[in-house]
């Protein structure tokens, strides 16, 4: 099945919902690892939106990417609570550990404020991080 056909299927699956764009974008991101320019165009045509509108939404959310990124992702919370619990001191080591192999993403709050600093890999949450534990998480991801 071509990418275009698959996109049509995804669009058709959600088209009748109220606000179909977000679920479509999630599915496309999950399936292809990105929502690239062609996908934006096809989704726009499918939903009778302009290309610009779809691109505006895609570019607004950090979870949607214009091109695939094969690197594993580690999300690190740098919101107020994790900051007060020392996350900033872990960043330099984490970046060194990540190098070019792992993508570090800053997020603001993972909902575990009392047990920070926190990170998330896939659907797994990791709390009470110190430099070593975070490094290890990054190295083994």
């Amino acid at each position: 099945m071509s990418k275009e056909q698959r996109l049509s299927e995804i669009i058709a699956e959600h088209q009748s919902r109220e606000g179909p764009l977000m679920p479509i974008l999630h599915d496309v991101q999950a399936e292809f690892g990105c929502v690239d320019a062609d996908s934006e165009r096809i989704i726009a045509a499918g939903l009778n939106l302009s290309r610009a509108e779809v691109h505006g939404v895609v570019s607004f959310y950090h979870d949607f990417h214009g091109e695939p990124d094969a690197r594993p992702v580690v999300q690190i919370c740098r919101a107020e609570a994790c900051k007060s619990r020392g996350v900033e001191a872990l960043i330099a080591d984490a970046e060194a550990a990540a190098g070019t192999r792992v993508k570090l993403a800053t997020v603001y709050c993972l909902g575990l404020c009392s047990v920070g600093p926190n990170a998330r890999i896939g659907d797994d949450l990791h709390a009470r991080l110190d430099s070593d534990r975070l490094k290890k998480l990054i190295e083994t991801v």
Binding site: E40, L49, S50, A52, H55, G56, S59, F60
Partner: peptide, 20 residues
Amino acid sequence: TFALTIDGRGFGSEVSAGQT
């Protein structure tokens, strides 16, 4: 026509015609 959008968010927000 809906040809324009705001690309990105926060400080990175920029007016953009069409796509990237």
